[in-house]
């Protein structure tokens, strides 16, 4: 396999990981939103306002990269997920406009708050459903029978809601203090229980819904390597609980990210070398060399730069949020 294809697999994996981590906590903020007071709601919004657009841009980047580097995958996956994608973009639309509008609204504030929560939850849930559909695999001619909606994918959807809630709550532990921080620790504990249960169910259930993965997990050598991941998950989970008990600022957030990364890696390795489960490999889906090369030039120059200035933008707004932003 050419280094170009490998490079693009790695870049796209990185992009979606960045999306999950960054927009994960933004969407997670929306999920935990109903549990805080009106004054704290303003604080939460003030925290995400300066950076939400950048976080969501990773999804746009992921979509465009899939389009450019693996056009066959893009054009195969998206029609199959026609309605879930529609739900995702409309949810993101609601999420995006609701906190722009709530700032300018007095009477309608509660309405936009509700839409913000609804948009965040449904965007997360549908991402989890599509993730589940990827794990169980799908046939290419299954556009009409709502193949993506099964008991298994509903479980992955709910699990991701808990997952992003955990990311959101632990991120908010970093950004808040006093009572609000204590509340977030409590929410993080509840969410982490949901994540653990979800992880367990999905892991046990997966070999039953996907025979290819079942065979792979039954191969002793592969199973040995793959078992490193659940081990890491359990370690991260233990540290997370310790850190939550000690009301640590940053550690819970890092451990939540670690839990997500192990799950993400496990998913990616189980899918490999396919990009569309069981039917299209990354080699089959890849764009011609001239396109991959042209793309790689831009990506290798621009990604480090954009990481730098995105980091810088975060630095400007670092620290606990104390001021409420108003329009």
């Amino acid at each position: 396999m050419s280094y170009l294809i490998l490079a693009w697999v790695a870049i796209i994996a990185f992009i979606f990981l960045m999306y999950v981590i960054l927009d994960g906590f933004t969407l997670g903020t929306g999920i935990v939103f109903p549990f805080v007071s009106a004054r704290d709601k303003d604080l939460l919004i003030s925290m995400i306002l300066p950076t939400w657009d950048g976080n969501q841009t990773w999804l746009v980047f992921g979509g465009a990269s899939l389009y450019g580097a693996f056009p066959l995958a893009f054009s195969t996956i998206l029609p199959i997920f026609y309605l879930p994608i529609l739900i995702l973009v409309i949810s993101l639309l609601f999420r995006g406009v609701s906190f722009e509008f709530r700032l300018k609204s007095e009477k309608g504030k509660r309405f936009w708050d509700a839409l913000f929560v609804l948009g965040s939850i449904s965007a997360t849930f549908i991402q989890g459903v599509m993730l589940g559909a990827f794990i169980q695999g799908f046939s290419l001619n299954s556009t009409e029978n709502y193949h993506w909606l099964t008991a298994f994918t509903v479980i992955t959807g709910i699990s991701l809601v808990f997952g992003y809630a955990l990311l959101g709550a632990t991120r908010l532990i970093v950004k808040t203090s006093d009572q609000l921080k204590l509340k977030m620790i409590k929410i993080a504990k509840i969410a982490s229980i949901g994540v653990a249960v979800g992880f367990l169910i999905v892991t046990i259930w997966t070999p039953y819904v996907n025979s290819v993965i079942a065979i792979r997990w039954a191969t002793p050598l592969e199973a040995f390597y793959l078992s490193a991941l659940p081990t890491l998950t359990i370690i991260s989970y233990a540290i997370l609980w310790g850190a939550l008990a000690k009301q640590h600022d940053w550690l819970p957030y890092w451990m939540s990210i670690a839990i997500f990364m192990t799950g993400y890696l496990g998913f990616a390795l189980s899918l490999w070398p396919y990009i569309v489960p069981n039917s299209i490999t990354v080699i089959q889906a890849a764009a011609p060399e001239s396109s991959l090369k042209f793309l790689l030039v831009g990506a290798s120059i621009m990604i480090p730069i954009l990481l730098l200035y995105t980091g810088y933008a975060y630095k400007i707004f670092k620290g606990k949020v104390t001021d409420v932003i108003y329009y």
């Binding site: 389009y67 042209f294 793309l295 831009g298």
Partner: peptide, 24 residues
């Protein structure tokens, strides 16, 4: 996608991230 996908990626890389990063 082999042709236009690249232009969209360049748009994200050179425009969207700059806008999003500095808009805040």
């Amino acid at each position: 996608g082999d042709v236009l996908g690249s232009l969209f990626v360049y748009e994200v890389l050179t425009a969207f991230f700059i806008e999003a990063g500095f808009l805040g």
